[in-house]
């Protein structure tokens, strides 16, 4: 058994004993009842299970939970799909997913949402030129599987959020 203390969506979960081989996915879904994070393959191939890990230096990244032990998240701060909306207000990316009809069955949505959000935050820290933006989005989302949509509208939604706030996410190029 190993001690797991973790902060999820801003809420501190007091240290608790968990099995060494308990997956983070099962910790979220079975122990905490947080089933917004999905189980898809158990092999880190579909990425429907990813959560956002916030590092102390302010950076963030996604992490699959189906093949990662819960214990390995000890001391970490993470965000899940349940934590994106604040005070009843959906995040810009959540709104864009709805506006663009980005998903159909919606089972992969949490994974895409987390990955897209990480990309937005990375771009906010390190804006990129407009040229090549689509490739950057494609690169970011490419590991995620979706069987209903063909990915098109997920990409469009992320692009829309970035272009709607271009000053934040893109390097402002001098006018010629």
């Amino acid at each position: 058994m190993t001690t797991l203390g973790i902060t999820i969506n801003g809420q501190v979960h007091a240290p608790t004993e968990v099995r060494d081989d308990l997956s983070m996915n099962d910790f979220l879904r079975e122990y905490l009842g947080m089933t917004g994070t999905k189980f898809g393959c158990g092999a880190a191939q579909c990425l429907s299970c990813v959560v956002i890990v916030d590092e102390p230096d302010g950076t963030c990244h996604t992490n699959p939970t189906c093949v990662t032990s819960a214990a390995s998240f000890h001391g970490k701060t993470i965000r899940t799909v349940e934590g994106h909306a604040k005070n009843g207000e959906l995040s810009p990316l959540q709104k864009a997913f709805i506006r663009h009809f980005a998903f159909q069955c919606g089972y992969c949505t949490a994974g895409f949402l987390n990955e897209g959000q990480v990309l937005l935050e990375q771009l906010a820290r390190t804006p990129v030129p407009r040229a090549g933006l689509e490739e950057r989005i494609a690169e970011a989302l490419d590991g995620h599987l979706c069987r209903c949509t063909g990915y098109f509208k997920y990409h469009e939604a992320v692009l829309d959020v970035i272009l709607s706030d271009a000053k934040r996410y893109l390097i402002q190029e001098p006018r010629g």
Binding site: T35, F39, L90, A110
Partner: peptide
């Protein structure tokens, strides 16, 4: 026509699918 009727539930991680439910839900 902007969005699906189940859109909010699906982007907020609501319990929707059979795999989401446990007895205590």
């Amino acid at each position: 026509g902007a969005g699906r009727v189940d859109g909010v539930a699906k982007v907020t991680g609501s319990k929707l699918y059979a795999s989401d439910f446990r007895a205590n839900d």
